[in-house]
Write a protein that binds this DNA or RNA. Structure first.
Length: 304
DNA sequence: CTCGTCTGTCTCGCATTCTG
DNA sequence: CAGAATGCGAGACAGACGAG
């Protein structure tokens, strides 16, 4: 992966542009809160909570104004939820901040939106990204970005695929074909389709499911452990179909007699490739590990 | 080096679609 | 309609990265 990891262009109109020094709360009540965080809270979450409290102070607010006294585990203080969601949406708080508060205080705050910055070649595509709904999930925005980048790689553009004026509920055929191609054969994440649907209100559909052709693969499917999760079963099924599309078969990749704890190299490579480049769900690897007791990993062993 | 932040991956639960 | 398969959305967290 080309090491491009920009810290964040300051967002238009946001107050994020202050990478200033001290980032600790000053209200005693906030300081106490931080002190009393559960020991086992991981440091990333700890940091999120800290940033959130600082954010509240910057807004002239305080925890006790937002959280009714005596709020218990499972509570969902509305004012707090609004504050954290707004903080995430408009003030550059990390998306994990909500989860951090939930984890730290046992709340069940929920959902919403993110912000992000991007980079593309075609002005048309840049404009498109800018016009995405603000509430669009960060991952979805990123998927849209990747999809546009993918189009550019293919020498295509959005306007070639999407008829002008195609509004909510539309299902532009060329776009659907491009996205499904991209997912199946060019490494776009499966959720890219959902991302486009979310972002533009389309109703794009995926390819229809298929079953493996090879008897060997059918037998494998039949012999999965009873207790294998349905979702995993489905992913393993997909993987076998994928192998067949690649002209490969399980027995070519997995040495006979590979048992629990094994890590067949060729299989690992195949599944990682499939995930990275052919639209298999990321959890496909986990599915194979579950189904066969393997120890496949996401990276080639890191060695010095 | 330490600390905070960012990204990628795994996992879970609910929703939707397919199949018999 | 019931149950299985698949899709979707979000939380959790480890590891990489970068600032100080």
């Amino acid at each position: 992966m080309p090491g491009r990891r920009q810290p964040a262009a300051p967002l238009p109109g946001s107050s994020r542009a202050k990478p200033h020094g001290r980032l600790v709360p000053t209200l005693p009540e906030h300081i106490d809160l931080l002190k009393d965080l559960p020991e086992e809270l991981n440091k990333a979450y700890r940091s999120n909570v800290n940033r959130f409290l600082v954010h509240l102070e910057e807004q002239g607010q305080s925890w006790s104004q937002l959280v009714p006294a005596g709020s218990v585990a499972g509570a969902r203080p509305a004012a707090l939820e609004q504050a954290v969601n707004e903080g995430i949406r408009h003030y550059g708080l990390q998306a994990n901040t909500r989860a951090a508060l939930n984890q730290a205080f046992g709340f069940t705050l929920r959902s919403d939106a993110k912000i992000v910055r991007l980079a593309l070649d075609l002005q048309e595509h840049k404009d498109l990204l800018k016009s995405l709904p603000e509430e669009l999930d960060r991952r979805y925005r990123s998927y849209v970005n990747r999809f546009l980048a993918y189009l550019e790689e293919q020498g295509q553009s959005w306007s070639q695929l999407v008829p002008a004026g195609g509004g909510a509920g539309a299902r532009p055929a060329a776009l659907e074909q491009a996205i499904n191609e991209g997912i199946r054969h060019h490494g776009l994440q499966p959720s890219t389709r959902a991302a486009l649907n979310q972002a533009f209100g389309f109703k794009l559909q995926g390819d229809i499911q298929r079953a493996p052709d090879l008897q060997e693969h059918k037998d494998l499917l039949k012999n999965f452990p009873e207790e294998l999760d349905q979702a995993y079963r489905s992913r393993a099924n997909r993987f076998l179909v994928h192998l067949e599309e690649q002209g490969q078969s399980w027995s070519q990749l997995v040495p006979a007699g590979s048992g629990a704890g094994a890590r067949p190299v060729a299989l690992e490579q195949a599944v990682n490739e499939g995930i990275r480049h052919h639209g298999l769900q990321p959890s496909t690897r986990a599915a194979l590990n579950q189904a066969f007791g393997f120890k496949l990993q996401s990276k080639a062993e890191k060695r010095g």
